[in-house]
């Protein structure tokens, strides 16, 4: 038995344990914390199966951002912490359904051909035409660019849906409550020390994404996390949701992507096609702006619907 196999075995046990902990946690806060741990274990598993891009995303989004949202939601729902337990029939039905949903894909996976048919070779072979070195970025921004573009619009709709929960009179106002700045708090120290480092790491992950694991989504998430840290420490405040520059920042990424895509009709013979030799620079520009938009949207999603009067 090799070390690798032992490690895999250990990770599987950890994942199952973290999953069990998430479901069995006494209150929603405990479940949210367990979910963060679960996400981190999953990220390690992605690393083990040689999918570092997915691992980064899992850690940043699945664990970090979602975890942050869940914890924030559970502290909001202080009164509902001791959630009412469902009746025994409902619980048994839920268990049976979950078992079925877990068993069916497991059975299906066992039936998959070995080796599975894959587009990986085709994706690598077409990569030189894009000038990129990371095939994942090639898939996201060239081969399946339209999916990435539309997913960013989904994010904007999610943000709009979140904002729509505000009362009419607070529309356009500031999200969340104003955090108090407390110079003695360790959060303040973290909020001052971490963001400069985090911003560099976020930009690095964005920049290397063209050739190494990383890219706009992971980079944007790290930037959003740094922003959130500064907000939580009370060092800065989230801007009012009616601010024109903020709206521009949110749509800039998908907007530029769409413009580049439409320009493809004229300069490259098709929508979302890149002219030969200009693919990489165009993709990089799109990715930089996408990163900023992703960071802004994620930060605003974390901040929640407007809760303070809009500026007059």
């Amino acid at each position: 038995m090799t070390i690798g196999l032992l490690l895999d075995f250990f990770l599987v046990i950890l994942a199952l344990a973290a999953g069990w902990w998430t479901i069995g946690a006494k209150d929603s806060f405990g479940a949210a914390v367990a979910f963060v741990a679960y996400g981190l274990v999953l990220a390690l598993i992605w690393v083990r199966i040689a999918a570092p891009d997915v691992a980064l995303t899992e850690a940043a989004i699945g664990s970090g951002l979602t975890g942050g949202m869940l914890i924030a939601a559970s502290t909001r729902l202080e009164s509902a912490r001791q959630a009412t337990r469902a009746g025994s029939v409902t619980r048994r039905l839920a268990i049976a359904l979950s078992a079925l949903v877990a068993a069916a894909p497991a059975l299906a996976v066992l039936g998959l051909p070995d080796p599975p048919p894959s587009l990986a070779t085709a994706a690598m072979a077409a990569l030189p035409s894009t000038g990129l070195g990371n095939p994942v970025t090639g898939v996201l921004l060239a081969y399946r660019a339209v999916d990435t573009l539309l997913e960013k619009v989904v994010l904007i709709l999610a943000l709009l849906g979140t904002w729509s929960l505000a009362p009419d009179r607070l529309w356009g106002g500031l999200p969340g409550r104003k955090e108090r700045r407390n110079a003695a708090s360790p959060l303040t120290l973290l909020g001052q020390v971490l963001p400069p480092i985090g911003i560099v790491i976020g930009l690095h992950i964005l920049w290397v994404g063209a050739d190494e694991p990383g890219g706009a989504f992971q980079g944007g998430t790290i930037l959003a996390a740094m922003g959130m840290l500064a907000v939580m420490a009370g060092l800065v405040d989230v801007p009012a949701t009616s601010r024109r520059w903020l709206r521009l920042l949110v749509v800039a990424g998908p907007g530029l992507f769409l413009i580049v895509g439409l320009a493809g009709f004229v300069i490259a013979g098709g929508f979302l096609a890149y002219p030969a030799g200009f693919a990489k620079p165009l993709i990089l520009v799109v990715e930089v702006v996408l990163t900023l938009s992703v960071a802004a949207i994620l930060l605003l999603l974390l901040a929640g619907p407007p809760e303070r009067e809009p500026p007059r």
Partner: peptide, 13 residues
Amino acid sequence: VYHLGSLAPPLGL
């Protein structure tokens, strides 16, 4: 029928 990015399936959409 339109091929996005002038790339035919299965790699393209």
